[in-house]
Simulated scan of single mutants.
Amino acid sequence: MTTQAFYSIGTPGQPWGPAEVAAWRSRQIRQRSYQDDVVRAIDGLRPRFDVVEYGRLDYGPDTYPLFALKSRTWREELPVALVTGGVHGYETSGVHGALQFLEDRASDYGNSVNLVVAPCVSPWAYERIHRWNPDAVDPNRSFRDNSPAQESAALMRLVAPLRDRVSMHIDLHETTDTDESEFRPALAARDGKPYEPGEIPDGFYLVDDTDNPQPDFQRAVIAAVAQVTHIAPADAKGEIIGSPVVSPGVIQYAFKRLGLCAGVTEARYTTTTEVYPDSPRATPEQCNAAQVAAVCATLDFMLAHGR
């Protein structure tokens, strides 16, 4: 964990301008391939799902097609469930957990749910293992009208025709050690604010919606994931990442007011997962499996309790 007084770009107390954003962008280096890791996996799923290109990001010289996969046997009488991953591109199990769910478990729900899965909302950030897009904008604070993030705007356009029909939305995320060593210091510098070190929880947790709390739903997901990996305990203040723990492994944010992806529909059941991949008690395989278990638990609860 870093305790640095200020980030290496910008002037303390002054928000970034175009020069600082350009300096930050120049440091971002491609470290993995969206085409090889994600698009190739999606191509392998084409025989089983309808694949929709719902947008294209033009970040010259790079261009990224955005893909969602839908149930091939779509039936109007069935509930609609939305699964999103990779809104923060560096949160690896969000992307690969969504793809693993499609590969291994989605067929279990083929006769009961219409699925829409967008496994990698932010491919530029996926390749550079970063939280932001090239404009130093956080897509997961940008799900709002006139969004400043192309990634968020594209997903909102995809979801718009189904916005009132979606019964469940699960957004797959991670909390990592680099949140404290890089991303939160960068956020403070970008906004001209002091950086205040925080504490990274060791384990899986969920974020419920302050304005639409579903405690039984969240508890069911926690119970399912606890069979795969450990659940994050509250800190000495009874909090996780600065928010009060409302039940074991669950905190709350105001999804729509904060422009979070999990608030992009009018779904009754919504949650954001947070896997901790840097734990010595978790492997990458467990992290992906935890995301899959969470998706299945949300679907099972929705089907058992109605829309």
Rank of each mutant, 00 (worst) to 15 (best):
T176L: 12
D177L: 15
D177Q: 14
D177P: 00
E180C: 00
S181V: 04
S181D: 15
E182A: 11
R184M: 07
R184Q: 11
P185W: 00
P185M: 06
G192K: 03
P194M: 00
Y195N: 00
E196W: 01
E196N: 13
E196T: 13
P197E: 01
E199G: 05
E199L: 14
E199T: 15
D202S: 05
F204P: 07
Y205V: 10
Y205Q: 10
L206C: 04
L206Q: 07
V207A: 08
V207L: 04
V207D: 02
D209M: 01
D211Y: 02
N212L: 07
Q214V: 10
F217P: 00
F217W: 03
A224T: 07
A224N: 12
A224K: 12
Q227H: 15
Q227F: 03
V228K: 03
V228E: 06
I231N: 06
I231F: 02
I231V: 15
A232M: 12
P233L: 14
P233E: 13
A234S: 14
D235M: 11
G238T: 09
G238V: 06
E239K: 14
I240C: 08
I241T: 13
S243P: 02
P244N: 04
P244T: 05
V246K: 12
S247N: 09
P248V: 15
P248H: 13
P248A: 02
G249C: 12
Q252Y: 08
Q252T: 14
K256G: 04
K256L: 09
R257L: 10
G259S: 06
C261N: 15
T265Y: 04
E266D: 15
A267M: 00
A267Q: 07
R268H: 07
R268T: 07
R268D: 00
T270Y: 01
T270M: 11
T271F: 08
P277Y: 06
S279Y: 03
P280E: 01
